[in-house]
Write a protein that binds this DNA or RNA. Structure first.
Lengths: 261, 261
DNA sequence: CGTTATCTTGACCGTCGTCAAACAGGGTGG
DNA sequence: CCACCCTGTTTGACGACGGTCAAGATAACG
């Protein structure tokens, strides 16, 4: 169901002086980028916009205008059914590009919203397109990031379509842990889940009540610990097992991840 | 659950003399393509491979080797959970490129299989990459097709996560009708659904039994007619309404579709 | 300190899953 | 030509997972 804007204020997880550093990290997570490409990217002009929680960056049906990179905070994509129930179709961390989806499509098929208070570096759409056109390496990196997003979509389809509540919830917790770590924003010991249980329910396609019960079950089972929204994972391997989680679909080639063990 | 190969033989829906004609149609469904780009694409060498039903074109974990375009027949992508239950994450019609997903990723995160007997035009991966590098228009068209695939993934997440069985099943029937029509393979009056109810169940994240009951309910409600696997839609608008179907996410800009009405 | 959002828990219900059997159709071989 | 078999479809009975409704508890904010 559509809900009223949450007035809660969130602390930003990270603030970077150079917004493009995190984008760079993201783009090079899957494939190396030539030094010249990195420099060209770093030379792009950008400006920062801050969004309050629940603020729309893109609204379904709009012609997207900005091309943004999430610098601090979290964001998500959502779609609504005709009767108003909501599904969150992806979550985004600092460093994630937000509008490659819409870079070439003239009408947004979904909305993008800030989850926490979020800082977004906006790049000029045309400049980025030109850069991608002139530098195949950058085009390739952008294409790759889009393909990885698509891979995550596929895993979510599997997760929602074929896993029962407990593994489904655990799976998302695992994915966030690994993605946060890959972006250098935490490790597998735990993190602050930046959303309400109602929002989490819209991520996993369950009701808030059942998410609450499932989290309790995971806690009772010794898979997770919770203090407020701070989640810790006393036994990562056990959690990974209940969540049926295998990070292959994240395509994190640079296997620096301790979680891979 | 994993199932044995089906020995049933399917008639191919269409056979085209020129496999690239359908790819062209697909790529230009969303955006026009310059004449020179069309010619360059048409000049690519290709060869045809035939796959029996259930045959794997790509296997999860493999390094993908071919870059294929579906010329005749149907194919699908699937993922498996740890306990062996299957989710079909996308369906593909003649004209659909099958391996742009894997064009730049070195390890397949899912499997691609023939649904019916299928003819696939295989292009040389390197040649296509080179072409995309030299011709921004083609790179853009490929990127666009990938973005549209991603949009369909998002809609499926919504469909499976937030719609109950009847609208969920109806939604997929609508999507196939519109996509078939967009490729010039039928119209909104109906089509031959090229899969078993068990496979359909893996598309919508339900059990075969419940799919059967849902189809019966749709039939009893006057939304669909069935004779074997031939589906006809006596009242398209009513079906579209129960399916909560809006074709925006398919991004068929050339609004030649009568279904849009 | 009151107001609001969020979390938690209980009771009950319904959609969908499970198990099982019967039925229909196509292909094959006797 | 018919018996048989194999898939796939259909139906029923039953059960469970998750949804719904509602109330109370907790925490955050003004």
């Amino acid at each position: 169901m559509i809900r009223a804007p949450a007035p809660t204020r969130w602390e930003l997880t990270v603030i970077h002086k150079d917004p493009l550093a995190l984008l760079m990290r993201k783009l090079t997570t899957h494939v190396p980028l030539a030094q010249s490409d990195r420099e060209a990217l770093a030379a792009l002009p950008w400006s920062i916009r801050t969004f309050e929680p629940q603020a729309y960056l893109v609204r379904e049906g709009d012609m997207p205008t900005i091309c943004g990179v999430l610098v601090a905070g979290f964001a998500f994509r959502q779609k609504l059914t005709g009767d108003g129930s909501r599904q969150i179709v992806s979550l985004h961390l600092p460093g994630d590009p937000l509008d490659f989806q819409n870079l070439y499509l003239d009408e947004a098929d979904h909305s993008v919203q800030a989850l926490t208070r979020a800082e977004v570096a906006t790049l000029d759409r045309k400049l980025l397109q030109d850069l991608a056109q002139a530098r195949p390496g950058i085009a390739r990196a952008i294409f790759l990031a889009t393909l990885v997003d698509a891979s995550i979509f596929r895993e979510w389809i599997l997760n929602i379509g074929r896993r029962s509540a407990m593994p489904r919830v655990a799976h998302v917790l695992c994915e966030l842990a690994v993605r946060l770590e890959a972006q250098g924003l935490g490790d597998h010991s735990g993190y602050d889940l930046p959303m309400t249980q109602e929002q989490f329910a819209d991520v996993v396609g369950l009701t808030p009540v059942h998410v609450n019960r499932t989290l309790k079950a995971l806690e009772d089972g010794g898979y997770i610990d919770r203090h407020k929204r701070k989640f810790t994972f006393p036994d990562w391997e056990a959690l990974r097992d209940v969540g049926d989680f295998n990070q292959r679909y994240l395509h994190l080639k640079m296997q620096e991840s301790a979680l891979a063990a």
